[in-house]
């Protein structure tokens, strides 16, 4: 994947920048140019405004992936979930820092900034959101694997500067 192709999505992938319909107030992530739910579909063109998601939500469904997507081979088994955010949009992402057996539908989670995957030794490293339990479960043994090298606060600040 070219650098630009990933880089242009950083405000969304790093910082959960979505959009809100100026007509019906429905929130979308990733941002939309037109509202899919307004009865007056055409009237919402150019009425969509930027909207920041909080990253809080809960697990709607999840799976434990054993046969990984490309670039995720070193992370198996990993939990992939549908997370409904408190603002409404549902996001697809990993749930980390928790044993798969402790993940359940209804688990409260919050978004965190992590390394997603690497394109081989010399390729682009992709960063973006994953989810962690909002409250640590009693049986949690702490984060698995090494701590990711980039701090979310730095990235957030950089993106805000760019935006």
């Amino acid at each position: 994947m070219s650098i630009a192709r990933f880089w242009r999505e950083t405000p969304r992938r790093y910082n959960l920048g979505g959009s809100k319909c100026g007509n019906c107030n429905t929130v979308y992530f990733p941002p939309r140019l037109v509202c899919p739910t307004c009865p007056q579909h055409r009237a919402t063109i150019e009425k969509m405004v930027p909207f920041q998601l909080s990253g809080e939500g809960e697990v709607v469904s999840f799976t434990v992936v054993q046969d990984a997507a490309e670039g995720f081979e070193m992370q198996v088994p990993y939990v992939l979930a549908l997370v409904r955010t408190v603002e409404g949009p549902v996001l697809t992402g990993q749930v980390v820092d928790v044993e798969p057996k402790d993940v359940a539908i209804g688990l409260k989670v919050k978004a965190t900034f992590r390394k997603l995957r690497e394109e081989g030794k010399a390729g682009v490293i992709h960063y973006g959101y994953k989810f962690t339990p909002a409250a640590a479960p009693a049986s949690a043994a702490g984060p698995r694997g090494p701590v990711e090298p980039v701090r979310p606060t730095e990235a957030t600040a950089r993106d805000r500067a760019v935006a």
Binding site: S61, T63, A69, Y78, L80, A81, T92, Q94, I105, R117
Partner: peptide, 24 residues
């Protein structure tokens, strides 16, 4: 690709999300 696969989804994983929800 941009909002599912990049985050670790595969086709069987996405159908598994539907399966788990159906079981639930």
């Amino acid at each position: 690709h941009e909002w599912e696969v990049v985050f670790g989804a595969t086709l069987p994983a996405l159908w598994a999300l539907m399966a788990r929800r159906h079981m639930h």
